[in-house]
Amino acid sequence: MLTIILRSIIIYIVVLFLFRIMGKRQLGQMQPFELVLTLIIADLATIPMAEIGVPVLHGIIPLLTLVILHFILTLLCRISAKFSMLVSGKPVIIINPKGIDYKSLKKLNISIDDVFEAMRGLGYFSLDQVEYAIMETNGKLSVLSKSSVSPVTNENLKIHVAPSVVPINIVSEGRIMKDNLKEAHVSEEFIIDFLHKKISNKAKVKDVLVMTIDKNGLVYLQMMKGESQIFKNVRRVA
């Protein structure tokens, strides 16, 4: 039993490490060859875990070989567009202003119902809302809506708005996110002082559920007990 536990830990660490060096794309939008790789890795990893007679290396070596292969394929795809097209295919327009391209649908081996399902997933329930629909190489549908049904933007209305800023999480579940403090240009003293001033003198960091701050000085704060509060134009000094 102990052997199986130790083997499982080793394989788990190796697989986790391999997925990290293969890049984050593995976890999300996978190309066909990446999907194949993921399926094989999942299968290979289980063999030495359960079979004690099989050396752990018999599981690890194919995994390492696949990583090398993946690296070479990715490199070749980056160098040559033709090779990339050969391995991953190319995006196909399945709806154009003239309507559905039935030939493309047949080539992709997908039905009209599949197209409708993918469209509904993107929030388009009618074909007349869609100008173009493109089937991407990772199997996802991208839709360009007709300008008549596109949402109105600030640019359309010629309204000037402040640039969007990303709020930085500085406290999460009672812990100060030290790595984010520098990015947010605040110190630990600032957080403690802010809590004392805005909440109470007895307020502590460990009682904070979440606290974020953005470039414009907008602070979002929620204590473990209580509702969220928003503070505008906060000066970042302790």
Partner: peptide, 15 residues
Amino acid sequence: SRVVIFLIFLLLIFF
């Protein structure tokens, strides 16, 4: 990543 890939390659040859 590239260094790790290279080391993995060497490791495979070694095995």
